[in-house]
Design a binder for these strands. Sequence first.
DNA 1: TACAATTTTCACAAATTACTGAAAATTCAG
DNA 2: CTGAATTTTCAGTAATTTGTGAAAATTGTA
Lengths: 180, 180
Amino acid sequence: MKITPMTQSLVLHFGEMGSRWGLNRTLGQMYAVIVLTEAPLNADQISEALQISRSNVSMGLKELKSWNLIKLHHIPGDRKEYFSAPSDIWEIARTLVVERRKRELDPTLSTLRDALMEQPSNESDEYAQMRVQQMHDLMEMVTLWTNEMQGMSSEKLSALLKLGEGISKILDVKDKLLLR
Amino acid sequence: MKITPMTQSLVLHFGEMGSRWGLNRTLGQMYAVIVLTEAPLNADQISEALQISRSNVSMGLKELKSWNLIKLHHIPGDRKEYFSAPSDIWEIARTLVVERRKRELDPTLSTLRDALMEQPSNESDEYAQMRVQQMHDLMEMVTLWTNEMQGMSSEKLSALLKLGEGISKILDVKDKLLLR
DNA sequence: TACAATTTTCACAAATTACTGAAAATTCAG
DNA sequence: CTGAATTTTCAGTAATTTGTGAAAATTGTA
């Protein structure tokens, strides 16, 4: 599959960014080409577009699947598998946030809980445990939020984000509001 | 500096996590030991606690500085520099979010803008540009939010996060609220 | 069931990233 | 200003991560 210069430069950029996003270069490039192309693509097309080996594409697709970032299609009369990204960009964002939480927060939360169960052996352990408690509480709140986010429609999510600076005002009058 | 078994296991965990957090293993470990220790530490203490070379600590501290994650102290009569983490965990979280945005979102936002300036050369470019526009709008909203967050007091941030599932309800009545 | 098409796995190679010790640079007390 | 204490830099090496081709496994059709 040929790729236009515009797509090409976006793909390269998302490759660079991939590594900063907890994915990696190739994964970033692969997802870029999938997101930017309307028609679902098969592995060979991706391999050709990015000039990477077929086996690398296979491994990348496996990982994108584990992130729930791609949809699988079958074309009648064609044995190949075709892949596309959700057409709703909010769905992609929601998935990314939730999956990153799974990878970045959940394991830590569980380690923090373990540490809190232990008996502090001296003063410095006591201080450490206090900090662990703070981190734990904060991360738990973030987890609640991402769960909430997971169940939100794209419209609602968009409305929430559009609040932007309005969020402070809303917080100020929240109590008043919830009383009625 | 000696390290208790509890701190030791937390340090190891944050090392593992460091890589998923856009830092790296050593940076994660270094920050863990700084966060979990009440007294400010000097480079030699960190080097000893983590069993890594002094030069590695120096590079790590440089990076932690660039993330604005550590505070610098001077102890009278001692030429060494001492480092600590903010005592307010919310401040740490706020900094992390803002710094990650700088590294993960800002460069992409600028690339997306560039792509939007280009003249689409054919239909597939038109589709790509449409997606780029969507991504751009979403990321811009996130940027607004993180800016908002940067200016929020820890108390307010905590209140916002505690809303948790309440956020949906608030959204539902937002318009009513803002009218009065 | 047989077999061609397709996908996945995996051992090794290539590329990237992280770590070290030695040397250079900086800092500051006297 | 001197020189000891301290920090930083950097070239080389070590460790980790990523990519490949060949072979194995799976899939689906005739």
